[in-house]
Design a protein around this nucleic acid. Sequence first.
DNA 1: CTCCTGGTTGCACGCGCGTGCAGTTGAACG
DNA 2: CGTTCAACTGCACGCGCGTGCAACCAGGAG
Lengths: 342, 342
Amino acid sequence: MSRSGEARTHRATAQDVAKLAGVSRSAVSRTFTPGAAVSPATRQKVLAASQQLQYVPNAAARSLMTKRTNLIAVVVSNQASTSYGRLLDCFSSRLMDIGYNVFLITAVENLDTDDQLLKMLRYPVDGFVITAAASLEFSRQICRHCIALGIPAVTLNRTIEGAELSSINCDHRAGGAMAVDTLIDGGLRRLGLIVGHEPTTVNTERMNGFLERAAERGIAEPAVVRARQFNFDGGYEAAAQLLGRHPDLEGLFCVNDQIAIGAMEMARKDAKLRVPEDLSIVGFDDMPAAAWPSFDLTTIRQPIDKMVGETLRVLMQTIEGDASPASHSVVPVEFVRRGSSR
Amino acid sequence: MSRSGEARTHRATAQDVAKLAGVSRSAVSRTFTPGAAVSPATRQKVLAASQQLQYVPNAAARSLMTKRTNLIAVVVSNQASTSYGRLLDCFSSRLMDIGYNVFLITAVENLDTDDQLLKMLRYPVDGFVITAAASLEFSRQICRHCIALGIPAVTLNRTIEGAELSSINCDHRAGGAMAVDTLIDGGLRRLGLIVGHEPTTVNTERMNGFLERAAERGIAEPAVVRARQFNFDGGYEAAAQLLGRHPDLEGLFCVNDQIAIGAMEMARKDAKLRVPEDLSIVGFDDMPAAAWPSFDLTTIRQPIDKMVGETLRVLMQTIEGDASPASHSVVPVEFVRRGSSR
DNA sequence: CTCCTGGTTGCACGCGCGTGCAGTTGAACG
DNA sequence: CGTTCAACTGCACGCGCGTGCAACCAGGAG
């Protein structure tokens, strides 16, 4: 029991352990370096002393020599709208499995200068994962930073034009096409679309996939509304607007499930429409709530696990010094038929 | 444009900047140390050279001298069940505002040995925030680690018995009491309760708050069921069990909103009950979906922002070397009346 | 016994940085 | 002009660690 008021407990160093174990500091270092040459005898002495002193190697100091921090920066959004919890979860558990730690960066609303960004990025990391949850401008700033400093970086569900970074996307276009197909196959012709307001990869690709297939199949001009927010409220508002202008709408595609559920609530509660009898709704992502009985939302499943796996595969490859040019992976999506569409 | 295939870009050091600027390395260091003595002239030279070389101070190296990493470890769960997204969001943005970075630790299912834990914790951090989202055993391990090494740590919505760590909780007991009050005030007598299966602070305190007040007000024995999971599915299953055994149930309190919504869906879709006419339901947390029209869930709001603020206040105080004994804060909760209860 | 070999060990250096201390400079003052 | 002092600068050291290198040791072959 240390007396209160004293300076904080001194964290044991390799030096301390060496002294207690009666060996050199190198021996301690080698004991904690896999593959280094230490005799079983000294190793045991070191381990015993380490345990007694509660010794934990200082990864920050180590990184000075090894040039590797085993830290991966994961960039996500500060708008709790999107369900990035699942995503982070996947990244974190998989990274910890392979010996990495997660340095979390949440997008800040308005980052005035690059200086502020640089202050946040003083910590050396081995690589960046930049997810679509972050705001567009913020993503760009981070990308610039990575490229300028030559730090391996990969973007997920976002392709930054002009930046030679590898990207991983789910097949947004195919998903949009699936959505329009199921609506048209259900005999519907008057279609609508709710999309986010930012020109992000997710928004534009899913929309274009929908519009192009619609055109191919002879649907002239689906009604398009941009939601002010990428969440339930945004969907609710946008649906009100859309249904106000097109009361005869038959089928609706929303670029994500949150928007879709917002739109469904609006359609049912306010517009007094039955889903799917009066209006079919299709979402995108397959978030947990999509399967809840009240919504039973037909949607396009984004295989988070696979996408995270692929992202880390590409990132690790880049970290391992592979100088191959940026790659652009596309992960297939899966159509999930439920009761919200005919 | 660096040629591809070359070794990775060498990250500029203070030495490089010093040479280019024609000053000593100390001058560079002082330029990036607020409050240090540097003349405006040299500062300008240093800043110019830094910009040209894309220099960013290495926080890991700095931490060796300063004994401060400006890193806070935030421990959350790997079960995406609970809505810890919002929580992380708050922590992250607030920490970044005050110059800290987030080191994310997600609870792993079965951590065999402490060695594995130690491997994850080699990175020196200034403090720990241990949230209730993590599994009980994992929390305990982390707490032991913090105490053994004298690292400042604070728990959120979880009080670890026997560990002299400060804790922050919302007022679970008061919330439970509010729930039972609104049910009884609505004229209901046959009450039920769905609680999680783990003996965590959240589960036991919310339950006890409910049961004690129920006893005070003359409700003999509310029916209690433990959900196998702390989420929608858990609530759904538990409600089936509960309503099977007590078809005449009038009021139901669930220890969180996800369980409550699961139970509501079960009651409506399968048991064909009307909410709130046949069954009143009250949740806890006030997650976004609670306000969606389909659920319109009466609940107890947990003020996330305030709790996070208080958590960081206490943690920072601990970090600043305040040797005062562990404190235990309780943040008030707020009753949110909606349509799921009479 | 000598020599050689393979396995260990310790020394010493440096990773990138902060900071105490002595030295230098310039300006203001007498 | 000489003196004083404050502002500034550079030197040198060390933070905790990995690692090349030379020294060392034990053991087997000759």
